[in-house]
Simulated assay, not measured.
Amino acid sequence: MSETTAIEKSPSVIKNYIEITKPRLSVVVVFSSIAGYFLAANTYDPWTILLLVVGGYFLVGSSNVFNQIIEKDLDALMKRTQNRPLPTGRVSVQNAWIYGLIMALSGIYMLYLINFATAFFGALSIVLYAAVYTPLKTRTPLCVFVGAFPGAIPYMLGWVAASGNFGIEPGTLFMLQFFWQFPHFWAIGWMLENDYKAGGFKMLPTGAADKGTAMQIILYTIWTVMVSLIPVFGVTGELYMTVWSAVIVGALGAWFLYYAFKLYKERSNEVAKKLMLVSVSYITLIQIIYVVDKFLR
């Protein structure tokens, strides 16, 4: 008689260290930076693009590492995060600190090789995200407002990498991604309300998934769509969009708003999830439309 034993394999060391950088989120953020770069650049330098991709990933990844170090004990309380490498002990806090610092310093140096302004804004995003936003998550719903600042930097960072300075164009890109984060993260907060409460996080503006929160989601969605359309009026310098692209952006905005109003009406986790997915699609498609519009003009 033979006996078989099922052995559950733990993730490899490499996989654990990749996991704590939140690779999917980091790739999305880097995509924003590259979109900003292509919007601003007249000629495209492969070396600069490589530095922006790798350096940007290192900065976002290190921010996520520091975030998880600070929230290790709270992550252990939530179903969504309790199996992460730090709460389970697959990665030690000491090693995570070393790893995060190496990534942060390497990322800042890579962005410095592009230009000083890019390195400055990259370093600022780490400080705001890890040292300000993360501690505030358990103290006040205003954490989302604070977190929207580092979250809005990547899109404009690409423009700064290409131009070397901050002006109306990267300022508009910053404003677009700044307002977008409110409906996006509040939709996530709505979906995960009970899990966040278990960890002590205060992510919703009214403290609950209610009409007040839904109304604020609608307002910030409106502002996001309005800012998305500003380039068509020719008031944002070299950042310009044709009328045809503006029509498409407007249609996407109506799609976004439809789910914001639907959430207000139905107030369900199912609609909140759809709104979150629509918000991700919206910001990604807007970035693509802006770049394609530039090349087709």
Rank of each mutant, 00 (worst) to 15 (best):
G199T: 03
F295W: 13
A104Y: 10
A152S: 13
R24Q: 10
E19R: 02
K15F: 11
K137A: 09
F174C: 10
G189K: 03
G207D: 01
W223F: 14
V29G: 01
L128A: 10
I14T: 14
N42L: 02
I18K: 05
L239S: 08
E8H: 09
S12F: 12
V60W: 00
M1D: 11
F174Y: 15
N269R: 07
G237M: 05
S281G: 12
Q94S: 12
Y99L: 02
A209G: 12
S125R: 04
R90M: 12
G237L: 05
A40L: 04
A117P: 03
A198C: 04
T242W: 02
L111Q: 11
L50W: 01
N42G: 15
Y133F: 05
L50C: 03
S106W: 01
T236G: 09
E270Q: 12
L128Q: 10
Y109P: 01
A187P: 03
F201Y: 15
K15T: 14
W190P: 13
T221L: 04
G151C: 09
A40C: 07
A260G: 12
V243W: 15
I14K: 11
V235N: 05
M191P: 00
Y99V: 02
H184N: 06
A246T: 06
L257N: 08
T138S: 15
I20P: 00
G171M: 05
N67L: 05
F182C: 06
S92C: 08
L128M: 14
I20Y: 01
Y57V: 09
R80I: 01
I114P: 05
V235D: 02
M276G: 10
T88Y: 02
T213R: 08
Q181Y: 12
E3H: 15
F182D: 10
F121H: 06
L124P: 04
A35D: 01
L39G: 05
R297A: 06
L157S: 07
D293C: 02
V91Q: 08
A272S: 09
M191Q: 14
I126E: 01
I34F: 10
Y220Q: 07
L285M: 15
L157C: 03
A208G: 09
V54E: 03
S12P: 04
A41I: 08
Y290M: 09
V232I: 13
F174V: 11
